[in-house]
């Protein structure tokens, strides 16, 4: 169930600021069942009544947007200039097909043949400002007929099973969070919960800022995806976290020093339920917690993240076992946090 939802959500294209396809799918699943509203930025703020109203108002959040690109100009020969939306290593887009705009026009990011490159060019990455998308247009006018400036561009990275128990897809960051929260809403909940599906995380934690303001929670749980660098040749302390070792719960990253009580609680619950859980062994990354924990007068915040290799690429790789362990931990954590 979780993976069906995840696959459906990952296959939608929603770079930051263009979250509509994902928002519509989430609303389709909420409509008529749960209370929800869509705020001025496009965040979906849902509420589900539980068996009781808890001592602490709990907000769970995930972001709907994904990293992508946006058309910033057209060259005389009809090539589209692009800007990166969110933190993309330009090395992971060259030599790939992309999907341009709502009409999903195929485009490619090519380069002059290696035969015409100098030795230095061959070993230097093509910087983002030298990348262009070829949609087959004959010239500038031809291109602009099909693609106006400001059109979003998405990775093509179909959802696929990889190896023994891994998944590979674009946009797992953070459709995973969206999928977990949608599944959680379906279950019987002991307490009321607020769930925020946020916009614009990848361009500065912007949606979650207003979502947290409106919901005004006491405690927030961010459901995310985080970098795992568990590859050969990477020293153990630089691996950050590892696939197959359960969800990652961090004490500190680049945006947040997490609430210590919630941090300890997450590990205690995982241990009690014999479910794997790991800490991040490097201060790296950041997520909506950075905006949420400083909302209003301050919010005790924790993030539970699915470890993913090759994050912010068309081919993020995660473990199904980790995903299931996270999906198990999150409702338990919300339940206990509600009565802290």
């Amino acid at each position: 169930m979780l993976f069906d939802t995840l696959k459906e959500l990952c296959e939608l294209n929603a770079p930051s600021g263009f979250e509509k396809p994902v928002a519509e799918e989430i609303i389709r699943r909420l409509d008529g069942i749960y209370d929800y509203r869509v705020d001025n930025l496009g965040n979906i703020l849902a509420f589900k009544k539980g068996k009781a109203t808890p001592k602490n108002k709990i907000m769970l959040s995930a972001h709907m947007d994904e990293v992508g690109m946006i058309v910033t100009g057209v060259l005389p020969d009809g090539m589209l200039r692009i800007g990166m939306v969110g933190g993309i290593d330009p090395r992971v887009v060259l030599g790939r097909t992309v999907s341009v705009g709502e009409q999903k026009l195929p485009g490619v990011l090519g380069t002059k043949a290696m035969h015409m490159q100098t030795e230095e060019e061959r070993s230097t990455a093509v910087p983002a400002d030298k990348l262009y998308v070829d949609i087959g247009a004959k010239d500038k006018e031809d291109a602009l007929k099909a693609v106006p400036l400001g059109t979003p561009v998405s990775f093509c990275g179909p959802y696929r099973e990889l190896g023994e128990e891994l998944i590979c897809s674009k946009a797992i960051d953070d459709r995973f969070g969206c999928a977990v929260l949608l599944e959680m809403l379906k279950s019987d909940l002991p307490y009321d919960v607020h769930v925020a599906f946020c916009v614009q995380e990848e361009v500065g934690l912007r949606g979650s800022r207003t979502a947290a303001y409106t919901i005004a929670p006491d405690i927030a749980i961010v459901v995310e995806t985080t970098t795992a660098s568990d590859l050969p040749g990477v020293e153990e302390e630089r691996q950050v976290c590892r696939l197959g070792k359960g969800p990652a719960v961090s004490f500190m990253d680049r945006s947040t020093i997490y609430d210590r009580e919630l941090y300890d609680l997450a590990f205690r619950i995982a241990k009690e339920h014999d479910s794997p859980c790991q800490t991040k062994t490097m201060i790296a990354g950041g997520n909506d917690a950075g905006a949420i924990h400083v909302s209003r007068g301050g919010v005790k915040t924790i993030a539970v993240s699915l470890p993913g290799r090759y994050l912010h690429s068309p081919s993020t790789v995660v473990s199904k076992a980790d995903a299931l362990a996270a999906a198990k931990l999150i409702p338990l954590l919300a339940e206990e946090a509600a009565s802290l």
């Binding site: 290593d89 330009p90 090395r91 061959r122 070993s123 230097t124 990455a125 910087p127 990889l162 590979c168 970098t227 660098s229 590859l231 050969p232 040749g233 990477v234 630089r238 950050v240 490097m282 790296a284 290799r309 090759y310 994050l311 912010h312 690429s313 081919s315 790789v317």
Partner: peptide, 18 residues
């Protein structure tokens, strides 16, 4: 999937390397 360690921790200078 093709990888080269360390992926995605890299910023600035490392991102220019092939």
């Amino acid at each position: 999937v093709i990888a080269a360690p360390p992926p995605h921790l890299s910023t600035g200078e490392e991102r220019k390397k092939v």
